[in-house]
Amino acid sequence: MHILVVEDDPTVRSFVAKGLKEAGHLVEMTDNGKDGLFMAVSEKFDLIILDRMLPGGIDGVRLLETIRAQNNTTPVLLLSALADVDDRVQGLKAGGDDYVTKPFAFSELLARVEALGRRGRTETAPQTKLEVADLEIDLLSRTVRRAGQKIDLQPREFRLLEYLARHAGQVVTRTMLLEGVWDYHFDPQTNVIDVHVSRLRQKVDKPFGAPLIHTIRNAGYMLRAE
């Protein structure tokens, strides 16, 4: 992906850029809102990672509103030390697609970057069926089959699996699951997500030998064929 990083803190900027490059992305960087705006409107990016508080007169939200006003639909991930619910809502209202608060784990940022990048590509086609290896998820009848065998899932388990399948081949963090499946925006102190994923594994993976749900250390989970 071609990614623009607008971030004024040099440490964070180079850290993010380095990590994204290692993950195989093409990264361009700038440290102020003015240049960021210029680059965002003059080049085509697949994703913009945008700090909220920027020097140079144009802050992140302003930049975002400006490019959205020009019908630029490039996915934007806001990166900010402003962690209030209100700040988050303000950022998303301005046209942001996701919001990550500082400090952050790079794995979390990368997982969300990948998820946003894919969303940009597949947004237009509504899917009725998801397939990963021999796992089939029918979104209309809400049934799951693996190797032709039907698996009974609770509604919540179905949504968990659906979320993983929609992001198949990508890392999905616990926070993403909590937000995407449960719509919770706080951090539960215990490993609730791990428990739910392990329950899902009992039904989806255990009877079939080859596991599809993989744990990614220090990051989260991934649904993929071996």
Binding site: V85, R156, W182, H196, R199
Partner: peptide
């Protein structure tokens, strides 16, 4: 945070939270 106040049915909300923790409890 009073700006986010609204009227809602509490029961599904409670069931949701319970659903989240039920798995942990079972474990």
């Amino acid at each position: 945070r009073r700006s986010a106040f609204m009227t809602f049915d509490l029961v599904p909300v409670l069931r949701d939270v319970a659903d989240l923790y039920e798995a942990v409890a079972e474990e």
